[in-house]
């Protein structure tokens, strides 16, 4: 990442409290690297950006991948970094739990006025999350990486890559056919999960369920525990997608009713439905 941030989505309060951040916007040609990522072909020819710092370098700072960044309520994006290696949407300034990562490299004297003000505001903002460690840690790879990596199967020569990422069955079917493999995952994006390799959840699909990350799926699986024909599959799927191990359907139902307003699904945190602890989202 170089000096700039993207100019969209500046409605976060960190752009106005306590100092008003007033970026000077400019337009740049959309970086070529953005085109290589899923959705990159749909980006406009030019993009609105603003300079956070003035080093004049295209490299030096760092962005985090956007995929799954906000799939848990302990993380948020503050600024999208203009970069020459990753996707559009990669995170230049972001928070995960009590830590705010400022991906730009320059000291204050080389920041722009708007960059300095944003930096001050970030310090004020992170104060509120003192004591609020992360809810999840990176323990798995987000499903969008299945699509991103599928597009690269012809370019990555390491023999272990294909089998290790997608499995031997798919290697037989899609070796040398990146478009086919991309389409395979695109067709069932909401059913992708990870068990050593990226998989499509055929068991969920057999139950007529089209997403493994919607809370209503969890409710449906719990209801199926009382259906003799599907109870065993439902139990297996609940073990796959939760960290709970209740025996009786009534206990599952009780747990769900008690927590349903605080349940979220995270790919990055292990393809699980998890519960936000009471009070976690209250800030100082």
């Amino acid at each position: 990442m170089g000096d700039a941030a993207h100019g969209e989505s500046l409605d976060h309060e960190v752009y106005s409290k306590p100092l008003k951040v007033e970026p000077q916007f400019e337009s740049i040609k959309t970086p070529d690297n953005y085109r290589r990522y899923p959705g990159g072909d749909k980006l406009p020819d030019t993009m609105k950006v603003w300079c956070v710092q003035n080093t004049g370098k295209r490299f030096g700072g760092v962005v985090a991948r956007s995929y799954g960044f906000t799939d848990s309520p302990d993380a948020e994006i503050i600024a999208l970094g203009v970069n020459v290696g990753k996707e559009y949407g990669a995170v230049g300034v972001g928070r995960h739990g009590n830590i705010l990562q400022w991906g730009y490299s320059a000291p204050p004297s080389k920041m722009t006025d708007a960059g300095r003000k944003l930096f001050v505001n970030c310090i004020h903002y992170i104060r509120r999350f003192d004591g609020k460690g992360p809810l999840v840690y990176r323990s798995s790879s987000h499903r969008m990486n299945a699509i991103r990596l599928a597009a690269l199967i012809d370019r990555i020569k390491d023999e272990r890559f294909f089998s290790g990422t997608f499995g031997d069955d798919l290697k037989k079917k899609y070796d040398g056919n990146p478009d086919g493999l991309v389409q395979y995952y695109r067709n069932d994006l909401d059913l992708i999960y990870r068990d050593k390799t990226f998989r499509i959840d055929g068991e969920l699909k057999s139950l007529g369920i089209n997403s493994n990350r919607e809370v209503k799926t969890l409710a449906r699986l719990i209801s199926l525990l009382k259906d003799a024909a599907h109870a065993e599959t439902a139990r297996r799927l609940l073990a796959r997608y939760t960290n709970q191990s209740f025996g009786e359907p009534e206990r599952w139902q009780s747990w769900f009713e008690e927590n349903k307003d605080r349940i979220y699904f995270t790919d990055v945190g292990g393809y699980k439905f998890l519960v936000v602890p009471q009070g976690y989202l209250d800030t100082k």
């Binding site: 400022w102 730009y104 509120r128 992360p134």
Partner: peptide
């Protein structure tokens, strides 16, 4: 991972700290 004090990490070394902690900001 037990460290929970409000913290700002900076630049590439900051991202490395986050990576080591398995944070999304890594």
């Amino acid at each position: 991972r037990q460290y929970s004090r409000a913290t700002v990490t900076l630049g590439v070394p900051g991202a490395d700290i986050c990576s080591r902690l398995s944070l999304k900001t890594g």
